[in-house]
Each structure stands twice: as C-alpha cells, then as structure tokens.
Amino acid sequence: MLISESDLSAIWLTLRLATTVTLLLLLIGTPLALWLANTRSRLKGPLSALITLPLVLPPTVLGFYLLLFMGPNGPLGQLTTSLGLGTLAFTFWGLVIASLLYSLPFVVQPIQNAFAAQGTHPAEVAATLRASPWNTFWHVRLPLAKPGIVTATVLGFAHTVGEFGVVLMIGGNIPGETRVVSVQIYDHVEALEYAQAHWLSAAMVIFSFSVLLALYLVQQRRQTSAQAVVGLRYEP
C-alpha cells in the first residue's frame, strides 16, 4: 500500500482545513467585496492593496510575521492567551487564520469583479420596485454575482489545499492537527521516499487539474448561454 495511514490523515486534514477556510472566506469576503465594488471611499485603495498583499508576498514572510504575531509576546498571542485560548501557533485554528489571510485575495477579487460588473442598474431597478437594500442584495445582486462566487469558492478551496510555506512556518508538523498534504509530500521528498512522494504529488496534480478544468467548463457554458440571452434581447 503506497498511500499510508499518515498520508490519509494528511489528506483528510487538508480537506477539513480547506472547507473551513472556504466557508469562512465566503462569509467575510462577500460583504467586503460588495463594499469594495460600490465604495468611493479613500480607504478603497489601501484596503485593496492590503487584501492583494498575500498574492505578492512570499509565504515565508507571511508565516514569519504570523509566528511572531501569534506568539506569547505578539498582539494576537496576548489576545488569545487573555481569552484563555492559549497561543494559536501549531494548532488547526492557527492554520485556519493563516489560510484566511493567505487565500483572501483569491476569494475577494472574483466576487468584487462580479459585483462591479453589474453596475448600479439592477439595484436601481429593484429600488424602483420598492425592494429594500437587504432584499435587493439577496434577490438581485447575489444571484447575479453567482459566477464570481463559484469562481471564488473553487479558487479559495484549491489555493488552501495547495498552501505550503505558511503552514510549514507555523504548523509544527503535528499529525492530524497541522500536517497537511503539501507538508507530508515535502517530508517524503526530504526523506528520499520518492515513491510515496510521487503518489501524493500525482494525486495533487490530478485534483488541481480536475478542479480548474471543471471551473473553466462551467464558465464556458455560462458564457455561451449568456451570449444567447443577450442575442435574444438585443438582436431584432
């Protein structure tokens, strides 16, 4: 058996982490994206830059600062300790927080683009029909932004599955708690266990390819159907 028990535990942990992070990111990212798409606030620029930062920064920078931040002398570490939670490094929830930061741009940007592409028109029409802003959001803006949300979900999930540098820096390699698939592969390679590394790596490649392929196929279908709708409406 080339996929060992510890490999399976790493796969299960990775899926659990990615699911938790994706759900939380959709909860945080959607309002954030909506605000960014609509606002003319001066904060928009700095905030957008801040959200995009993890895309550009090496994961080691993020991991290093998180380690200092979460430590007993860091602000977050002091907060969690005073709340009786202990420090977050080397825990599952520590990884969740790190992944939230790390995958944030992959979730916010597609949703923000989807909201921005709607323009103000649909919301204004809804308002003339006496829909409350809350109703407009749930029944007009959110359904219209669905393609962006699907993209965000897939990218957020896949990016968290592929996360490595940050986890390596703050995880501590604890089986069932912080040893995710990418770290497990790294361990196999470093220990010169190339056969096991191959199995897990191939699984990762196939998974990532399938996810992206599915995403593009769905988008393609949506585009053609959207064109058909547009065609029906505007071509006499």
């Binding site: 380690l67 200092l68 430590g71 007993p72 002398n73 420090t87 490094a89 080397f90 390596l168 703050i170």
Partner: peptide, 10 residues
C-alpha cells in the same frame, strides 16, 4: 526552524 519556534516563544 526548531530554534525559531523556541526563540519566538511559541
């Protein structure tokens, strides 16, 4: 890295 874990107090 082990040293870093201890030096940062984590």
């Amino acid at each position: 890295q082990t040293f870093q874990f201890v030096a940062s107090g984590n």
